[in-house]
């Protein structure tokens, strides 16, 4: 049996090509359906499947009014702005705190170090639901009275993201040569200087990896935004959930709305996925 060879000399595998094509299509078609539907008129979308428009693109009614309707009519624009304001600080601030902690866990020796680190690892598994009622009391009218504001959500995302951030950065930092830090110490650098001048710049790949994950998690979060943001501060994901809840009218806005919520994380994901994959695999794959 003669099999053709690929450029790199490996034999072509028809079985893999066929199966992977099917799987990749299965994974893409649902999203494609959403994208196509979002550009169809309400009547078209209600009376024929999206694939008919795709097979007959010139006979179908295409429109962008769903997007303008969702953006202004369903007020996704304010949700979009809120999402940006929530997500960027909630991504950047935990990294600052976690990076110092990760440095200490990697390059310093101190009593109870293992205990504290095991605590971090244990807390990574604890469901965040434990925090809701106590934090509603602390941040709500019975406590600080800041529930409903951005700050409440920044605080919560910072706390919830912290364990994974410390863990990821520490895993990465422990692959850096210890000799670099030790020679800096001999040269008279304080730990603070060593951190800023050496370790933080060298950890950029891991920081980028965590930042991507945390940004996606904060942007895509429904639970915390719904519980801790008042309606004029709420995120685009909560707005989409409310659209999904209102059956009947506005169905044509739904698909466009869903795509509006997807577009930012998609861009972040595509641009930074190389870092993210490297960070994920260096952190988790050890054997």
């Amino acid at each position: 049996m003669s099999r053709s060879l690929m450029k790199d000399g490996r034999p072509r595998s028809p079985f893999s090509i066929v199966t992977m094509t099917i799987l990749a299509l299965l994974w893409t078609i649902p999203t494609l359906g959403l994208l196509v539907t979002s550009f169809r008129t309400r009547d078209d979308a209600a009376t024929s499947g999206w694939w008919t428009a795709l097979f007959n693109p010139f006979g179908a009614d295409w429109t962008t009014s769903n997007y303008s309707g969702a953006w202004t009519g369903a007020d996704l624009s304010s949700g979009f702005v809120n999402s940006i304001i929530v997500a960027i600080p909630a991504t950047v601030i935990p990294i600052m705190f976690a990076a110092f902690a990760a440095y200490a866990f990697t390059f310093m020796d101190f009593p109870f170090k293992e205990f504290f680190f095991l605590l971090i690892i244990a807390v990574m598994v604890v469901p965040i639901q434990v925090a809701f009622q106590p934090m509603l009391n602390i941040l709500g009218p019975r406590g600080l009275g800041i529930s409903g504001q951005y700050i409440a959500v920044w605080l919560l995302h910072t706390g919830f993201g912290m364990p994974l951030c410390i863990y990821t950065l520490r895993n990465y930092m422990s692959t850096l040569p210890r000799s670099v830090v030790e020679s800096a110490k001999i040269d008279g650098c304080s730990h603070f200087q060593t951190f800023w001048r050496l370790v933080a710049p060298m950890s950029i790949p891991a920081i980028a990896a965590f930042a991507t994950l945390q940004f996606l998690w904060v942007w895509n979060d429904l639970l915390i935004a719904k519980l801790f943001l008042k309606s004029e501060n709420t995120t685009v994901i909560v707005k989409l959930q409310q659209l999904l809840g209102s059956q009947g009218q506005g169905q044509e806005l739904l698909t466009a709305g869903a795509f509006i919520t997807i577009i930012v994380p998609m861009i972040v994901f595509v641009t930074l996925q190389r870092y993210m994959i490297r960070g994920m695999t260096s952190g988790a794959v050890k054997g």
């Binding site: 110092f100 200490a104 020796d109 101190f110 605590l119 925090a131 605080l155 919560l156 706390g159 730990h191």
Partner: peptide, 27 residues
């Protein structure tokens, strides 16, 4: 100094996850 570096991060974890765990059991 090691405690100074880990303290801010740990305090946040304590406030946001460890204290609420016990408070939730209490509630």
């Amino acid at each position: 100094i090691p405690y100074a570096f880990i303290l801010p991060g740990l305090l946040l974890v304590g406030l946001m996850l460890i204290y609420p765990t016990f408070q939730t059991i209490n509630y």
